[in-house]
Simulated assay, not measured.
Amino acid sequence: MERVVRNCSHELHADDECSVRMWVQQHQKLVFFFQYYSVSEPFILGIQTDWQLQQMLHYGHNGLVAFHSTFDLKKLKHPLSTLLVFDSSQNAIPVTWIITSSLVGQDIHKWIVLLFERIRTKDPSWRPNAFLVDDPSFDVSSIRENFQCRVLLCIWHVRRAWMRSLLKNCYNVDVQREMFKHLGWALYSSRSVPNALDTVEEFMQVFVDQCAFVDYFKRRWLPYIGVSSFMLDFY
């Protein structure tokens, strides 16, 4: 696939839409889902080679499938998301690429369903042991519905997001340390809704003077605490 991309022109036509449509037309065997912009629909391009499909069938069955959705979020107009499986040496193998302007539930459902049907056509018994995600706001209902497996949230990505915001919004190192410690308590108590809510409430009371971070936390994370989309296992 990399060789195909390197050997083809990045711009097949002066018009972006024509260029994309021409590329899709020329590489139909690689594209399992394509939807261009419309008034009501986002851009979605799903790519998977035959080799990638075989790797997903082989290593994904009774194994782990990971969804990496944080590649160049700031640099690319439409971020690249990647599905990964892991070989016997735990090396990550990219088995699907998704380029899309939307990662909301109904749009994820469109390509997830086709990808799952593509896999099950080859092996009706195929099922992963768990599906790993790196964003707690990611709508996991389509994954659970189709892949019928546990969904695990990457604790490293959660902690990294919190640390970045702390460094940006709080300049006192001692306060940063205490806030991060309290956030850790909230994170590890999140499997129990009452405990998680109590811990978060205590955190916001103790650090009420850290307005910038507390506002960020309320906006970005609080909506997911105590609801099913946040109540995931961690890895």
Rank of each mutant, 00 (worst) to 15 (best):
V140D: 01
I108H: 15
L132T: 00
T96Q: 12
S137W: 01
C154Q: 06
F207P: 10
E117W: 03
I98L: 09
S88E: 15
L222P: 07
L30W: 03
A66D: 13
Q25F: 14
M231L: 07
I108R: 15
S40P: 02
D215T: 15
Q205L: 11
G63C: 13
K181Y: 12
C211Y: 13
Y59W: 15
V133K: 02
R127V: 03
Q26D: 13
V140I: 10
C18F: 14
A130H: 10
D134G: 05
H27Y: 08
M163S: 11
Q26I: 05
F234W: 07
F86S: 07
F230V: 02
N172Q: 11
R191M: 05
S141V: 09
E202D: 01
T121C: 04
L64E: 10
H27N: 11
G46L: 08
S101P: 02
V85W: 07
D233V: 06
W221Q: 06
H109Q: 15
N7S: 13
Q210A: 01
I44M: 02
H182G: 06
Q26F: 10
Q55W: 14
I225G: 00
I119K: 04
I155S: 09
K168T: 08
F213D: 14
W162I: 03
K181G: 08
L103K: 13
L64H: 10
E117N: 11
L153A: 08
W23T: 00
R159V: 11
G46Y: 07
R120T: 11
S228E: 10
G184D: 12
E145M: 03
P128L: 08
V104N: 14
V5I: 13
N91V: 06
P42G: 01
V4A: 13
F234D: 05
A66R: 14
D209W: 07
T96N: 10
N195R: 02
V31T: 08
C154P: 06
I112M: 08
L73Q: 10
R6I: 09
N195V: 00
V65L: 15
K218S: 04
N195A: 01
A212M: 15
T49N: 06
P223V: 00
M56E: 14
P223L: 04
A14M: 14
T96A: 15
M204G: 06
D123Q: 08
I44F: 01
F33E: 05
A66T: 14
D139R: 05
N146H: 12
W97N: 15
L83E: 11
L114N: 05
V133E: 02
V5S: 06
D135S: 10
S38M: 05
Q54T: 09
N7I: 04
M179G: 13
D15N: 11
K218Y: 06
Y37F: 08
R159Q: 11
G105P: 04
R160I: 01
R21Q: 10
V214Y: 12
V95M: 10
N7T: 09
V206I: 10
V39S: 05
